[in-house]
Simulated scan of single mutants.
Amino acid sequence: MALLPSLLTALVAFSYGQGGSLGCELPPNHVLLSRENLVLLKQMSRISPSFCLKDRKDFRFPRDTVDGSQLREAQAISVLHEMLQQTFNLLLTEHSAAAWNTTLLDQLCRALHRQLEALDTCLVRETGEEGSALATQGPTLAVKRYFQGIRLYLKEKKHSDCAWEVVRAEVMRAFSSARPLYERLRNENRDVESP
């Protein structure tokens, strides 16, 4: 009887190991979760954006990075993972809890967490040891710098309500701009799954 669990473990390891990798298999609801993120972010608005016009800032989102057409699959996964992780970290601060409806904030954090778990699996499967190196290279590093600029902006603005509103709108734009990466990964998954 002890042979069965060992055999199952070996089959799973072979199916997803370096030689037998079938690509990143995102769950079917992964794209739905990204849409859910946008809906939740939209609902979190507490101040009219027109009230905060003086606080607007160009954070210089690295659009060419998230275009995705020039990225290998592992890089695309790394960039998406970094965007979600940085957003998740930003939302877990005590300042964000004071700025937004905590029920919506909790729902968004749970959705981000589910996406991060799926991408963690993909990142390990696609990159293996290379994963940590990808986090310090071009596209992923550009995303880190972008979010560092957002954190500095919030600090300069003393985490004001308007600063959080500007950041909320910026994160929505970033998620919308990352849609090509999501779509690319979903399409690559379909291509791998079809005979």
Rank of each mutant, 00 (worst) to 15 (best):
L32I: 11
A135Q: 14
L84H: 09
A99M: 02
L41C: 00
L53G: 10
Q43M: 12
P62T: 00
E94S: 14
L119Q: 00
L33N: 13
L84A: 03
Q137L: 02
L80S: 01
V31Y: 10
H81I: 07
F61I: 06
H95A: 01
L84P: 03
R63I: 15
Q107D: 05
D67M: 11
A98E: 14
L119F: 00
K42A: 13
N29S: 15
L40D: 02
L123Y: 06
V31M: 12
A76K: 01
A118D: 04
G138N: 06
L119H: 01
R114A: 15
V39I: 10
T87G: 02
E117P: 06
N89I: 08
I77V: 11
I77Q: 00
D67A: 14
R145D: 10
D67G: 13
S132A: 10
L38V: 07
A133M: 12
D55R: 10
E117I: 10
Q137C: 05
Q107E: 05
Q43S: 12
N101S: 07
I47N: 04
L141T: 09
M44N: 02
R72V: 11
T103I: 15
S50R: 14
A111Y: 05
L112R: 02
L104Y: 01
L119S: 01
R46K: 06
Q137N: 06
V39W: 06
S45N: 08
Q137I: 03
T121R: 14
L123G: 00
D55L: 13
L92S: 13
L91G: 07
R125Q: 02
L91Q: 06
Q85A: 12
H95T: 00
V143S: 00
G131W: 11
R145K: 09
F51D: 11
E82I: 05
L134W: 04
R110F: 12
L108I: 00
R72I: 12
C122E: 04
A97Y: 12
K144I: 14
P139T: 04
P49K: 03
Q75V: 04
M83K: 09
E36Y: 08
T87Q: 03
V79T: 04
R145L: 15
R114L: 13
R63Y: 10
L123S: 10
V79L: 02
C52W: 11
R72N: 12
L32S: 14
A111S: 15
L105N: 05
L116V: 03
S96W: 08
A98K: 13
D64K: 13
L105W: 02
L40P: 05
D58W: 01
E82V: 07
L92P: 11
L104F: 02
E73P: 03
R114T: 10
L134K: 02
C52V: 09
D106Q: 13
D120T: 12
L41K: 00
V39G: 04
L92F: 13
R63L: 14
E130D: 12
F88W: 15
V143F: 01
Q115F: 07
